[in-house]
Design a protein around this nucleic acid. Sequence first.
DNA 1: ACATGTTGGTTCATTTTTGAACCACTGGAA
DNA 2: TTCCAGTGGTTCAAAAATGAACCAACATGT
Lengths: 306, 306
Amino acid sequence: MESQMPRRLAAYDWDDLRFFLAVARTGTLRGGAESIQANHATVSRRLAAFENAVEARLFDRTKGGLRLTQLGEELLPHALRVEEEIAAASRVVAGRDARPAGPIYVSIPPFLALSSIVDDFAEFGRQFEDIDIHLQVSNAFADLERREADVSIRYAYEVIDDVVGRRLVRCSKAVYCSADYAVKIKDDGGDGLTWVGWNEAEGETTAPWVIKGPFPNARLRHRINEAVPQVTLAAAGAGLTYLPCFIGDRYPGLVRAPYQKPVPDRSLWLLLHSDLRKTARIRMFVDFLAHRIKSRKDEFVAGATQ
Amino acid sequence: MESQMPRRLAAYDWDDLRFFLAVARTGTLRGGAESIQANHATVSRRLAAFENAVEARLFDRTKGGLRLTQLGEELLPHALRVEEEIAAASRVVAGRDARPAGPIYVSIPPFLALSSIVDDFAEFGRQFEDIDIHLQVSNAFADLERREADVSIRYAYEVIDDVVGRRLVRCSKAVYCSADYAVKIKDDGGDGLTWVGWNEAEGETTAPWVIKGPFPNARLRHRINEAVPQVTLAAAGAGLTYLPCFIGDRYPGLVRAPYQKPVPDRSLWLLLHSDLRKTARIRMFVDFLAHRIKSRKDEFVAGATQ
DNA sequence: ACATGTTGGTTCATTTTTGAACCACTGGAA
DNA sequence: TTCCAGTGGTTCAAAAATGAACCAACATGT
């Protein structure tokens, strides 16, 4: 966690960003100073010190004001986000979170971006206009541990971390393929067919899930360590693939392969740190999402027949 | 921009977060002090000052170290994100951005979350593992102006801001409805049918786009100021709705209504501030996305027939 | 031409922050 | 026990940051 941070990070005084921002906004030293209740001489010095640390000019000084340089412009968005983050922090300490506002950082694996859950995000954003949803699309389970995300949505059998996990629904999976491909399937165990699967142990087609599945004779030819291209490949007619029903049923061009039934799969988990349970907007979001998803339980659990 | 910030924001010294973080990580004053090359007395005082400003304890002092309190735990993720943001800023100034890493903030309107563009995000995240994509789902065009996002993707006719806009593709729209609904449609101008449309001027069914469209006799009954529920409503069989083809063709359960052809619609724009053109990871992302989307041009422009 | 109200820059006495040294205390090892 | 290596807390002289006052330069309106 430390080694990845540049050594020079410590060289900066984070408070300098506050001065930088004040000047960037007002365009003058005096105006910026007033906006943060400081002296313009102080602002000038802090700015000079910051520029010295950066070893570059952040503003062009002109009579009549300061204008951001190229580098200053590039720095501005970062400074703004720092400010937003600190504002969110101050809301936490002030307990003003009772009136929910601010950002929520949600970490999801890429394939969930193909699910109806994104609709829920949209709906939430509509109902709570003062809350911005930041989706962090990543497979890294670690986001939550490192506390970079407030909420994490995962698709897994169990959750072991020291986080608060709510199991939303136990999902089903089924074998999917393109509509064109489906007509080629006979009730013969998958002779001549192709699997699109994961990069697992090089057990050729002897992988247990192949043998135990409804199409043991199909060959595992496409091995991909990521769900999204599996979906797109299958939709393009490359072969059979196991997908959670709430993905496969939704993705255009995919149909459930005949001669099989959905089987139980992993669960959808809503994870957050126990310390965040109290903050209003996180609670709001978690409850909202849990309610919406559970109310569409059929979409995820997908019984024996569609 | 100022009024929405709490007054107390100015009361904090942002640099205190750096001390807070150092102690939170190491668990001791002296360790924290060493990690940021400061004296443990200084760390102690800064921490005390911060706690004083917050008017609450952030750590429990015990012989042998400091442990975060509830509030401290809640503050930690914000402090971590501030640090990440400052690290990104320092990468910018150090020019280390040549080896792309760090966060990219992308602002998109909710309905684009239903498009294939999310697949591109997933693919990008796969190819550049050191870059995290933060999707900010929002209709607010202002995100870019306020510089809270690095890149903004919009669906519009023209772009007027002082931003660098790349027109990716000029898209087509068409009338969509559920498959069930489609069989009820005859070549009679839409008699007895229902429109799902926007909250526009209360011109009843006399809206120009209704009259000029392929189904002038259909009634505008559902008025929604948001695209996503229009999609879901139409998919549920509530009626006809205009959608960009790259949404409608993709959404399960929707089909193009008969007796009509796609017509030109707005364009997909990729927007970013000119100052960001140089930073490596942003450039990387923009080029990647532009290339991917343009290579699937047919999906968006969708000629007269499917 | 001439005030007037800006701007950023500079100076210097004052205030604030800092770090070295010290203290008291604890827990484990010798 | 005795010692030692760790804690966090406190003190005080030294260092650094600050703000009021002043300066020169540039606009603008009289």
